[in-house]
Amino acid sequence: MTSELPPQLPLDSPAPTSSTFGTVAAASVMAECLRVQADVPPRGAVARRFGRSPLSDESRPWYVGALGELDVASRLDSLGDEWTVLHSVPIGTRGSDIDHVVVGTAGVFTINTKFHEDARVWVGSRRLLVNGQATDHLRNTRYEATRTQKLLSAAAATDVPVGGVIAIVGAKQITIREQPADIAVLDIARLTRWLKKQKPRLDESQTAALSTLVRDAATWTSEPKHETDVSGFDALHREVVGAKRVRMIWGGALLIAILGVSVQMALDYFGRLLGG
């Protein structure tokens, strides 16, 4: 049973971050993004000139999801040496993974990153809504925390406290009506501060033992690790950022042109008044 816990995209994103035992942040999301993007035809000269995004409607959700996980990973990596931080932790035998796992004196936390660009998020004790629509975020995060608790407790031969956290990225508004009893829902900006404020539950030796345990890939899965094409995702990211910059340049040029015409019309108008 899990422990009870108290209650717009930037132009650039963090570089992929390595975890303790060799995977990288957002590994599975990047892989799926590249898999879907592989079916998208390359942009032509005109599309590149006018800054059309290389992403398709199908690959874009995976792309922004990866950026969300990379953002969370970058913040978690700043926690300090007293914390152990892992990303894209493989679990089980079906290719599933946990976005982030952190270990400190407050215990173990699984962190489920959810990117909801410009959305309104509402949180109640039993529901999490995005733009008024129900989600499975609470259920899925609870399942990840419970599964992690069982795995770590079995490996450690003692009960290991595990809490579930949902990190919200990119939302326009987050309304916390009531925090769920067993899941903490947090805006990404509050994540590391919240972790550091949790009351200690483990002593130094217990924390060190758990840190060693979570670093062991055998704790999580018996499947071989699959390499992530980080350079491929980085190249795609550079292309997306470049296209956005081109659109910004065109937008600025258009605005200048509109303002120029408006100023000239005003000058002409006042000129006629003065001349008349």
Rank of each mutant, 00 (worst) to 15 (best):
V29I: 15
D12N: 13
P16D: 12
S56T: 06
R60A: 13
P41T: 08
R48L: 13
D71P: 00
G44P: 08
V36D: 07
A38I: 09
P54H: 07
S78I: 00
R43G: 13
C33Y: 06
A15P: 00
A66Q: 00
L34H: 11
A45K: 11
P10C: 02
G22D: 13
L67K: 07
W62P: 01
S74E: 14
P6V: 03
G80T: 04
S18P: 07
L70T: 00
P10Q: 05
R60H: 07
G44S: 08
V29C: 08
M30D: 11
L9W: 04
D71E: 15
P16N: 13
F21A: 15
C33M: 06
P14G: 02
P41M: 10
A26T: 05
S74Y: 03
S74K: 11
S3R: 13
M1P: 03
A38Q: 15
S74W: 12
R52A: 08
S19G: 15
S28I: 02
P6G: 03
G68F: 05
P42M: 05
G22S: 14
A66R: 00
G51T: 06
A47T: 06
R48K: 14
D57N: 04
E4M: 00
Q37H: 15
S18A: 14
T17H: 09
E69L: 01
L34W: 10
F50G: 01
S18E: 13
R35E: 15
S59E: 05
Q37E: 15
G68L: 07
E4T: 05
G44L: 06
R43K: 11
S56K: 05
L79P: 08
L11A: 12
A38N: 12
D39Y: 12
S13F: 07
A25P: 09
R49N: 02
A25Y: 03
S18G: 02
S59I: 03
D39A: 15
S18F: 02
G68Q: 07
P7N: 08
S19Y: 09
T23Y: 11
V36P: 10
T2W: 00
S78A: 11
P54A: 07
S13M: 04
S3E: 09
R49M: 14
L9K: 06
P7L: 07
Q37R: 06
V64H: 06
E58T: 10
D77C: 01
Y63W: 12
G65A: 06
R75D: 08
V36I: 15
L55N: 08
